[in-house]
Design a protein around this nucleic acid. Structure first.
Lengths: 211, 211
DNA sequence: AACTGTTTAAAACATACGTTTAGAATGATG
DNA sequence: CATCATTCTAAACGTATGTTTTAAACAGTT
């Protein structure tokens, strides 16, 4: 009985462990054996639950992707509502904040896994073996919902420019997430690692002005 | 005689091939066998010339790193000179341009390998297995040369802010380089892939305003 | 208690990996 | 031509890989 509580679901534990390992190393560098070993399950469990290593990787992605993008859209919706209530238009800062806040906050989230997942995501973008174009697809849909608002805020920009700048914005974020520890080395320890909110604010400010 | 010309140096050809393979896949996903096979050399050539797979990876990095950073410093120096001649201070746009132009131009360089190397670099940043902190070290030195100029241009910013924004700037660039093909997917084909100069200008503009 | 579907276990499979070794080919130098 | 270090080749080594297989353990139901 307590055994069940301690061990949790084997499937879930595999996901937790591989999320962490995939966040720190490439797909190829993480072996199924290292996953099952640190998860404390049998080697064949991965193939049993997920069919293959690839299946595991995609399962790790899918588990939290929907929630992530939902939070972004929710934040966009709230922002829109608030602006309407106050009889004004949505600001650029609010838009970019809605794009960046969820991932950045997840990055420093205390809920286990959330922080790791963001780093997993940033790395997954570079994996071509795992059909990551499909992964991007879901984000593309989210961005499409943002585009009209960006056009509204910056009417002088063409759609093309909007997409480029969204692209850039995501770039800063991914890079910041992936190389968060490097800012210390880069600045000769001058920069401490900020809190989530501070990092978010720095990012938003940079991207706002860039936009 | 022509054989020598066709085959070139085996060592060099291994570097060329692995530069390309490492640019498209992670360190672990590229096998020594795939390198030697596509290079048309014997399997043991990698260990003969570079000692190990790791040694090969670092050799790929080192081959062009110095030149890359030298070009940046050279561009900074030219910029400084020009500004002095005209009796004015260096502009922010010039500084960022000196940081970004070399890699972006390499990205679209016709000289074989230069384009690939940039993508190799962007990917190498994520490899922790290959002691990439040492790789970063050389870039850090370059950035340190830029910092005083940034302070001069933006005297209201602290050193900390400067480093963060350099960090962000590099982030946009790396992301743009790594995911250049994705802008088309992201924008539903609205964005064509620009020329090097256009991409550079977009980037510089974004980063300038962000700074 | 017997049956049933699900989960776990241990072992084996076939292949791919990085590296090493021993020797042949090569090419310049005496 | 003989000598020598350098370069290349083929084969093997030992290990690690993802996956499959076969059977045991388990949990819930009748």
């Amino acid at each position: 009985m307590p055994k069940k509580l301690i061990k949790q679901n084997a499937r879930e534990r595999i996901l937790d462990v591989s999320e962490k390992l995939f966040a720190n190393g490439s797909f190829a560098s993480v072996s199924v054996r290292s996953v099952t070993a640190t998860a404390g399950v049998n080697l064949s469990a991965v193939n049993y639950y997920f069919g293959s290593k690839q299946g595991l990787f995609q399962a790790v992605y899918i588990r939290r992707a929907t929630q992530m993008n939902h939070e972004r859209l929710h934040m966009l919706h709230e922002t829109e509502q608030k602006a309407r209530d106050e009889g004004r238009e949505v600001t650029l800062r609010e838009l970019i904040s809605a794009l960046l806040t969820p991932p950045i906050f997840w990055l420093c989230d205390v809920r286990p896994g959330f922080s790791v997942y963001i780093r997993f995501l940033a790395r997954a973008y570079l994996e071509e073996a795992s059909d990551m174009d499909h992964v991007l697809r879901q984000e593309v849909d989210v961005f499409d919902r943002f585009v009209p608002f960006f056009q509204q805020v910056k009417p002088d920009l063409g759609v093309e420019d909007i997409y480029w700048r969204i692209h850039f914005t995501m770039g800063v974020m991914h890079h910041t997430i992936s190389h968060l520890h490097r800012i210390s080395l880069l600045s000769h320890k001058a920069c401490k690692i900020d809190t989530a909110a501070q990092t978010r604010d720095r990012l938003v400010e940079f991207c706002c002005d860039g936009f």
